[in-house]
Design a protein around this nucleic acid. Structure first.
Length: 490
RNA sequence: GGCGCCGUGGCCGAGCGGUUAGGCAGGGGCCUGCAAAGCCCCGUACUCCGGUUCGAAUCCGGACGGCGCCUCCA
């Protein structure tokens, strides 16, 4: 069985069949680097990472491209207003983007091309469209003629008549179009932005229109036809609609076979907006003490095609849920580290945990196979955790050989796709040796006090350590410790 | 105005005609110098009003409420 995905183009869930067997080629619409991305943006990016990881988990080779759009109306406006060059505006934002990217544990993609470094490819693409008679020129600008593109609007299911009627005739550049729905491929003429963004072209000085960079770069890195195109739902129209029209107009071939779109994030039950102030960046959340792993978990915990309600309490919930998974993993590792457990007395029958592990892995894969049903996949994992814990509690001489390994393998598979446990691991164990030494020294001192039954002193040490952000837990095998906050003490 | 999605137990969140999704919070128990952590057990919910059906959270109609798209917002 192949994975199945909801395809916006057809409105159906369809089995995934890549053009080249075993190789998934994906184009994921990236950020416009005029301002730092927020959690809403990252919901989509984290989901694209999930898709990537899942396909790899399912054995596909993945080639994924995400653009960095560093020239458009907003970046140009920002440059003009601040008196800086385009690069001076966009590079720092781009750096922040990749910093947040890394914070949330997203894997680097195979290609992260910048629009400004592919202007020649874009110009070549416009020329191809020109040769096919799909464009017209007005006042130094080149437009795409929608009337000559019979399939136009298929992705967004636009009603041709309605769309025409709804076409707005506002803005100082609209009047020169043949049809209000036509969009610009190349912006030329006097625009007052020559000091910031200008390239030479067959139509004179100017700069590329919006959708062009994605068409040009997907073609350059993935070929004229590839498998999956992803983005947020807002991209369906106009961005992907126009991208599709210009790419397919130039090549005569389908741009992508599967179009997947992630729904938007809601904040506190409502639309995210700057005026309401319900707008968080990743550093905003880290400053409030939330862990990257909790952010990532929350963003992935709901199905990607539903409007996930993002709240601060939700992050606490996510962190607790993650802790449950992490504790389970810790329990398993303790078993492995403990005694070799050479399969004591209990004979006959099967190995319950190994069986549960197989069931869990199958349920997990099936859920993800069905249009990346993350909620169902998580339910499968949590059910396994409960059942395996029950078995571990009941096992007379500890689990049998191989069972713990089987359980650990389930967690590893889960995390290969969700990427939350490994991320959390980097947050809770400080790698500063001095910090570790200090905590362990305090534990030794406390152990002495406990041995002497001086519990007042032992409790005082515990409080001291807790003030520094660590929690001590006494177990039969000695005292263990962990950091209680992501903002590790210094 | 046009097109579309959604409304599930305290909160989040699956579900697509009949069997307990799952998580968090809350309650009980086990363990424990204390504490914490952990583990186990416990929840019969589906906006409202009609209808279809032996049977509906799930299908149809209506009302109310939330959200989105209709040219540069992931």
């Amino acid at each position: 069985m192949a994975p199945r995905f909801y395809n916006t183009l057809t409105g159906r869930i369809e089995p995934f069949e890549p053009l080249e067997p075993g190789h998934a080629r994906i184009y994921s619409c990236g950020p416009t680097v005029y301002d730092r991305a927020h959690v809403g943006n990252f919901r989509t990016f984290v989901w694209e990472d999930l898709l990537r990881r899942f396909l790899k988990f399912r054995g596909y080779r993945v080639t994924q491209v995400m653009n960095v759009t560093d020239v458009d109306d907003r970046t140009i406006r920002a440059a003009i207003e601040s008196g800086m060059t385009l690069e001076e505006v966009t590079r720092p934002v781009e750096a922040q983007f990749f910093e947040d990217w890394k914070t949330l544990g997203l894997e680097p993609m195979e290609h992260h091309p910048r629009a400004t470094e592919h202007v020649d490819t874009m110009i070549a693409l416009v020329r191809r469209l020109e040769e096919r008679g799909l464009t017209y020129e007005r006042d130094g600008s080149v437009y795409f003629a929608i009337s000559r593109s019979p399939e136009y609007g298929r992705l967004a299911r636009l009603d041709p008549e309605g769309a025409r009627a709804a076409g707005r005739v506002e803005g100082d550049e609209e009047y020169s179009k043949e049809d209000p729905r036509d969009f610009v491929l190349w912006k030329g003429g006097e625009r007052g932005e020559e000091s910031v963004a200008v390239w030479d072209s067959p139509w004179g000085l100017g700069r590329p229109g919006w959708h062009l960079e994605c068409s040009a770069m997907s073609m350059e890195y993935l070929g004229e036809s590839f498998d999956i195109h992803t983005g947020g739902v807002d991209n369906i129209f106009p961005h992907h609609t126009n991208e599709m029209a210009q790419s397919e107009g130039a090549t005569g071939r389908p741009l992508a076979r599967y179009w997947l779109h992630a729904e938007h994030l809601l904040v506190d039950g409502g639309k995210m907006s700057k005026s309401l102030g319900n707008y968080y960046t990743i550093p905003d959340l880290l400053d409030r003490g939330y862990r990257p792993s909790a952010i990532r978990y929350l963003l992935l915990s709901a199905h990607y095609r539903t409007q996930l309600n993002f709240t601060l309490p939700g992050l606490n919930t996510a962190e607790r849920a993650l802790e449950r998974l992490a504790e389970f993993g810790r329990r398993l590792l303790d078993q492995v580290a403990g005694e070799p457990s050479p399969s004591p007395g209990v004979e006959g029958g099967s190995h319950p945990i190994a069986i549960l592990a197989d069931q869990a892995r199958a349920a997990f894969r099936d859920a993800m196979d069905e249009d990346l049903s993350a909620s169902d996949a998580l339910a499968a994992i949590f059910t396994f955790v409960r059942e395996a814990n029950r078995e571990l509690d009941a096992a007379p001489g500890g689990p049998r050989a191989g069972e713990v390994e089987a359980a650990l393998a389930v967690l590893q598979d889960f995390d290969a796709v969700f990427g939350v446990l490994s991320l959390r691991e980097t947050e809770v164990s400080p790698d500063d040796p001095a910090v570790r030494a200090w905590v362990e020294g305090r534990i030794a001192a406390r152990d002495e006090a406990r041995a002497a039954r001086d519990y007042e002193r032992a409790d005082a040490i515990r409080r001291e350590v807790e003030e520094r952000g660590f929690r001590l837990e006494d177990t039969p095998d000695g005292t263990r410790w962990k950091a209680t906050t992501s903002g590790l003490p210094t």
